[in-house]
Design a protein around this nucleic acid. Sequence first.
RNA 1: GCCGCUGUGGCGGAAUUGGCAGACGCGCUGGACUCAAAAUCCAGUUCCUUCACGGGAGUGUGGGUUCGACCCCCACCGGCGGCACCA
Length: 805
Amino acid sequence: MAYEHDAIEKKWQKFWQDNKTFKATINNDKPKYYALDMFPYPSGQGLHVGHPEGYTATDAVSRMHRMQGFNVLHPMGWDAFGLPAEQYALKTGNNPKDFTNQNIQVFKKQIQSLGFSYDWDREINTTDPKFYKWTQWIFEQLYKKGLAYEDKIMVNWAPDFMGGTVVANEEVVDGKTERGGYPVYRKPMRQWVLKITEYADRLVDDLDDLDWPESIKEQQRNWIGRSTGSSVFFNVEGHEGAQIEVFTTRPDTLFGASYMVLAPEHELVDQITTPEQADAIKKYQDEVSRRSDLERTDLNKDKSGVFTGAYGINPVNGDKLPIWIGDYVLASYGTGAIMAVPAHDERDWEFAKKFDLRITPVIEGGDVQEAPYVGDGAHINSEFLNGKNKADAISEMIDWLEEHHAGEKKVNYRLRDWIFSRQRYWGEPIPVIQWEDGETTLVPEDELPLRLPDTNQLEPSGTGESPLANIDDWVNVVDENGRKGKRETNTMPQWAGSSWYWLRYMDPDNDKELASQEALNYWSPVDLYVGGAEHAVLHLLYARFWHKVLYDLGIVPTKEPFQKLVNQGMILGENHEKMSKSKGNVVNPDDIVNQYGADTLRLYEMFMGPLEESVPWGEKGLHGSYKWIQRIWRLFVDDDNKLRDRITTINDGKLDKIYNQTVKKVTEDFGRMHFNTGISQLMVFVNDAYKVDDLPVEYMEGFVKMISPIMPHVAEELWSFFNESDTIAYQAWPTYDESQLVEDEIEMVVQVNGKVKGHIKVAKDLDKAAVQEIALANEHVHSTIDGQDIRKLIVVPGKIVNIVI
RNA sequence: GCCGCUGUGGCGGAAUUGGCAGACGCGCUGGACUCAAAAUCCAGUUCCUUCACGGGAGUGUGGGUUCGACCCCCACCGGCGGCACCA
């Protein structure tokens, strides 16, 4: 009977569900393995063929680990807060909750049709009050530790986005919002901020011990941007007590400082500006404040600035340095002030050239009037640093500064604190109340969750505040003493729930703790985490930060949440371009499942190339995968839907070697997530099996086990031909016999001058001299040498003979 | 500009420590089966040259190390991703 994917897949999906085959429970007799997918945002578009790639990989790893005796935790859930649901609700007057739940149902059905071995009893949903109770609880712990604070800060204000909202630094790309591409301006606003910078050092240093792709670690290091240098204090001439602190990574070039620049927003600007310069300064400040980030960076490569009229005093030599303001100095980095050394810094050089400021070289090498010299070299014009190299000069200058109280060693970070509030309805309410007497309190823990009010009439506030601001019943509160207060109307960003969700899977129904200590200790950490590289800095940095806070609180047992991280590559359209609706190259997994079945889709996605690489979709290749499953089917099942007669207990030995090789290679390759090469080995086995008369039961059962991580439905069905009552999911993974892999006689290659001229068969442990003799006796080798002198002869036992003439 | 990754047949991709380049799949070609087609099974398939045996070239380009280089080193070119006035 032919292979019927539809019936087989439905049958086994029902079996797994009815029997809770993949239910995970704590079992201290077994080693645990936690395989996690980045949980999806359930968008209205439904599943994309990119989703199943990572999901299939973790599923295959999970299934293989179960067969290898591990107790596997493999869960799935929904990152369901987010903008599209709110936009939809505002547009249509519907409730985002209903819309979100519908989308989840679609997603869940699609995911289940692919036969993943999730423990659905552990399904979570970030918008479920039972879940976000603990998101709010974690926020309260952050607040108590002083890691969550309110501040009037310069935020990324996107007035055209959703009726006006603030976005995080990480959500700004090229001066525009990451989603939607709306312009972003700097604006001071009251916001909740999380002090991620306090963990900056640990977030950098702990990367070293993680089994993560180097590129992701590097992106995180760059994002945190730790730089070591020193601060230097400059007095301002004629302003007793006014002191400008600058940060520099090159204190060794202090003798070459020829001017200073403050950010236009720097607090000392007004104080030190001379009356003659006041108008020009004011005008420049106004101009800059109206510029968006985009205009300040990309569109404005030309340096601009205005002289304040004031002078700083160089502490090391008493030089008078004109103080300018310029927007190439950012208020938000370092101290918002720099010492300019145009001879050895590109940006300072451009500025100096434009405004005709002094350029004094302090390091030998290059003509600094023509171009800045940024390389190393001997210091000049630098008194006690003369002749020294960069590294020595830096440490000596820092010593000098510290001795003279003119500066100190300092570390700076590019990373800023995490702006944590959003002016939206569809997010976790921040559990804070502002009382009329000015006190700010947390909602008591025993009153959590603080639920989002149900509403069918979601309306923009019109003030840039969250729509929650209009819901008076919810906003206004009175305490037992009659004191009035207002709830915080900002909600948390979408990153909140995903910053700890992997912990909740460990104990999803616990209403006393975010998860029990027993569960946390047993399942932590996540052994394998798979998802797209687009989360390299956002999600993965926030998640690590929260995890470290919970570690410090003694809640989680590990410093890091995700021991091993793998980024699946993108699946591109058939034209090698990113799949998108506008390009018309989107493939819908539902269509594939209908036409070919889930096993074919899973097999194809694992076979098409290395998991980490981006690979184009190919309909022909997909069809090839389908044909191979049918070929397997025919190998096992005859026309009467019975196991073929050729599958017997007779073993004529013809498949011994290839079977044992296959077990070895598949076990190793799947273990390293090199699915494409493991599958190719399974194909070789099938090709060989077609060529022999007798198929030993043991090998055929082993083969079915080996295909089961990738093609679980067809594997279960074939397994049932051998053993009617059981699932294959917990059968022992096949082992191989090492002795079957070693041969007594091996083939060696004989080269002449590096070119292959012949092959010889020799005994495995024949000595070099004998091998040499046989090689030289080879007819073809002999005729190639043609009596010429042999200059050198290399014998690598078991591999190669190379004769040099 | 800086950082990371990457470059192999017509296509997707293999190649463990420096040791037979192109496994496996797709496509293509031929054969078997069939009235025929599809499906299936078998064989071939890097390029050039040769009836053939053979011979030559070949892993982005140019150099180097080595008995031997897809692999290591230097310089360059192309592609992908990230960062981008961060002092």
